[in-house]
Simulated scan of single mutants.
Amino acid sequence: MTIVESYVEFGTREARGVSPAYERLSLAVARDAELLALVDTLPPGKRQPNLLFGVVRLLGGPVHDPAAFHDFTLANWPAIEAELRARAVQTNEPGRCAVLLPVLATLPQPLALIEVGASAGLCLYPDRYAYRYGGHRLGPGDPVLDCALTGTAPPERRPEVVWRAGLDLNPLDVTDPADVAWLDALIWPEHEHRRDRLRAAAAVAAADPPLLARGDLVDDLPALAARAPAGATLVVFHTSVLYQVPAPRRAAFAEVVRGLPGHWIANEAPDVLPHDALPEPPGDAHHNVLALDGTPLAWTRGHGQEMTWFA
């Protein structure tokens, strides 16, 4: 996919109907020869729209007005480039727990969780958050995660988690204001409810920090999995992570995770982690496929706001 195509794709399939500012900005960048030339100087893994937009927001730049974004980016490119090369997209959206819960609740309890690409580990607390599937409320607590669920009944319980750990090349610390500022910058501009959710989830994690290991998803996963307590069901999971991993490493990761005891929950785009004979997705927006041990179960939206069960 060319740089132009990636920005058009992001605007029309991911941001449309979700973030008018990012839809407008993505399509403007796709037509902006000066900005495209700058983005083209970056390594391929650093050209994503959400990374560029997040860095500009982090540095105090405008994202609602494409012309102002253009001027700010050109004027501040050395600082922006340095941040782009140093950072990665680490969207730590706790709302994704709402699409993981219908699977986690069905597995033999208690659970030992490992999230690959964990960022600050906010998705490692599916037992601590509250949920709302339409009119069905599950659990007390804050934040409350809303999900439009179709095709299956809402889960009746939250999982019992006795151990939680995350693996990331650059783990973030929810007690570090600079790391929380980066997580905030990655939230799309209109999404104040997600900012509120981030603060509430960060408070949950800070009160009982998870084990966050710095490491590679292939080389270091087996050793981390070996630390899970006996008597708990090991669950390795990840959401919107593998697109940042080269295809050969994705295949190596799949081989490693299939060789571990326990279960594997993947929530990735179908072109990143392919499956045979998928049904048509529910609309033109970007959807991930939720799969358990390689078997696809449902279409999901990127922030956990919607889930269409088809298994």
Rank of each mutant, 00 (worst) to 15 (best):
G134I: 07
A98C: 02
L104Y: 11
L124A: 05
A118E: 08
A153R: 12
D127P: 08
D127Y: 05
W163T: 00
A165N: 13
R157W: 08
V103Y: 11
W163F: 06
R128W: 00
V116F: 10
A112P: 00
C123I: 07
P143I: 05
D142N: 05
E115S: 05
I114D: 06
E156P: 08
L100N: 03
V162N: 06
V103R: 12
G141C: 02
H136P: 03
E156I: 10
C147D: 01
G139S: 10
A112M: 00
E160Q: 13
G139Q: 10
P102Q: 08
Y131L: 07
G117D: 14
G134H: 04
W163D: 00
A120P: 15
L167Y: 14
A165Q: 09
A120H: 14
R157M: 09
L145N: 02
W163G: 00
P110G: 07
G135D: 12
L122K: 10
L113P: 04
P140A: 14
P154D: 06
L149P: 03
L124V: 03
A148Q: 10
I114R: 11
A148G: 05
G95W: 09
W163E: 00
L124T: 01
V161E: 10
A98I: 03
A130D: 04
P155H: 09
L104W: 07
C97M: 12
G141V: 01
G134F: 05
R158V: 08
G134Q: 04
C147G: 02
P110Y: 10
T152F: 04
P110C: 09
D142I: 00
P159T: 08
L167N: 15
S119V: 13
G135E: 13
L101Q: 11
P108S: 01
P154G: 08
D127G: 07
P155Y: 12
T152K: 03
G121E: 08
L107Y: 15
R158G: 01
P110V: 06
C123W: 05
V144M: 03
L122E: 07
I114C: 07
R137W: 01
A118M: 08
D127F: 04
A98M: 02
P143E: 02
L145C: 02
G121P: 11
E156R: 15
L138Y: 09
G121V: 08
A153S: 15
Y129F: 15
A165I: 11
E115A: 06
L107F: 14
G134A: 07
V162G: 10
L149N: 04
S119H: 13
G134L: 06
Y129T: 15
P154H: 09
D142V: 04
A153Q: 15
D146C: 08
G121M: 11
A153P: 04
R158P: 02
